[in-house]
Design a protein around this nucleic acid. Sequence first.
DNA 1: TGGATCTGGCAAGACCGCCTGCCAGAATCG
DNA 2: CGATTCTGGCAGGCGGTCTTGCCAGATCCA
Lengths: 213, 213
Amino acid sequence: MATPARRAYGGVPAAQRRAQRRAALLAAGLDLLGTEGQRRLTVGALCARAGLNERYFYESFATCEDVLVAVYDEVIAELMAAIVAAVAGAPDDTRAKARAAIAAAVELLTDDARKSRVVFVEALATPVLSARRADVARAFTALLVGQAQEFFGAETALRVGAWGEFAAVYLLGGLAESMTAWLRNDLPVDRDELIERSTDLFVLVGEYVVRRG
Amino acid sequence: MATPARRAYGGVPAAQRRAQRRAALLAAGLDLLGTEGQRRLTVGALCARAGLNERYFYESFATCEDVLVAVYDEVIAELMAAIVAAVAGAPDDTRAKARAAIAAAVELLTDDARKSRVVFVEALATPVLSARRADVARAFTALLVGQAQEFFGAETALRVGAWGEFAAVYLLGGLAESMTAWLRNDLPVDRDELIERSTDLFVLVGEYVVRRG
DNA sequence: TGGATCTGGCAAGACCGCCTGCCAGAATCG
DNA sequence: CGATTCTGGCAGGCGGTCTTGCCAGATCCA
C-alpha cells in the first residue's frame, strides 16, 4: 500500500480492520480450497467470497500460494491442538489415550468436510503444501511413537526402532483412508464405530510391535 | 479432422499412425502428470513432449481431462494385472499370496515414481479422477476381502462383514502411506523390508479380524 | 508427373487470471 | 468546513491457454 492504514473507520482502528480483512480472506480460502480445490483458489474468487475488493488481497498476501499455506497451517494447528488437548484430558491408560486422540481427529475432520479435503487431498497435490505435509506426517509419526514409548517404557522403545515408525505410518495412513472412505459413505459403520475400530487397530498393532520388536 | 486419414505414410498405414500418435500423447501425459502434475498437463505441453503438432491433439482427445482419465486408467489396469498375475503365480498359502500381491504393487509403483504420483496424488485432486479413484478403492477392497474369504472360509467370512471391509481399507491406506513415505526417504528400511513388514501387518490384521469378527 | 493427402509450423481471436492504476463517494480528523 | 484517508468498482496491459484456420513442404497414389 502506498498509504499505510492509520485512521479509524467505522469506529474500528486500522490494525483491526486489516486483521479482519485477512481473516475474511483466510475463511474464503478454506471455503474455496475445501470445496472447489486449489485450481479455483484465485485472487478474484477469494476476494469475491470474502466480500473484499481485489486491491485488498495484496495488503495481506503476495500470492495465492501464501493463502494456501496459511489455510493449511491453520487447519493443522487446529488439529494438533485438538489432539493434544484430548490426550491430556484422557485417563492414564493406553487405549483411552489412543481413543481420545483418534476421536478428536475424526470429529474435527468429519464435522467439516472442507478441512478434511484440505488435509487429505489438496495438501498432496500442490508443491508448496506437499513439502509441508511431509513435515506434518513426520510430526504425527513422532507423536504416535512418543506416546507409545510413554506406555511401553523406554527399554522396549529401544528395541522397537524402525518397526515402530513403520507401524505408525501404516496406522496414520489407514486412519486417513478410512476417514475419506467414511465421508464417501463407502464404510458401512457409524462415526463411533469408526473411532472404536480404529482404536482397536491402533492397540493391536502397537502391542504387536512391542511384542515382536 | 476435415479429411480423415486414409493413405499410408512413411510405410505406415493411417490407422497405425493414429494409434502411434495417441500412444505418444499418453506417454507424454504420464510423464507430465507424474512429474509436473495436473496443472501443467496442457495441450501445448502434451504435444511438445510427444513431438507432435497441436492439431493432432484433437485427433485423439477432446479435452485434457480425457488424457487425464486415459493415463489413470492405464496405470490402474497395469497395477491390477500385475497383482492378479502375482497372486495367481504364488504358492497356495495365505502369507505367500499376500506377499506376492504387495510385492507386485510396491515394485510397480516404486520402480516408476511417475505412476506412484498419478495413483497417490493426482488421482485425489482432480474431480474427474476422484470419482474413479473411489471405484478403484472399492475394487481393491473387494479384492482383498475376497482373497481373505478364500483362505478363511465362507462361514468365517459371514461373521466378518463390515469389520473385514474396514480393516481392508485400513491396510490399503497404510500401504499407500508407507509407499509414499518410503519414496520420500522417510522410512529407514529398504524395499524388501517394506514388502515384508507390510505383509506382516496384512497377516496380523487379517487373522485378528477372523478371530474377533 | 500431377493431384491428393499428410505433416509441422504458425498465428489469430477468444477467454481467463494477474496486478496496477485511476476514480468517485464516504468517513474521519484538525 | 477543508484536507486527508479509506473504500468499492472498474479498466487495461500482460501472459498463458484453447481452438481453429491457413500455409508450404514432403510423401503417396494413379
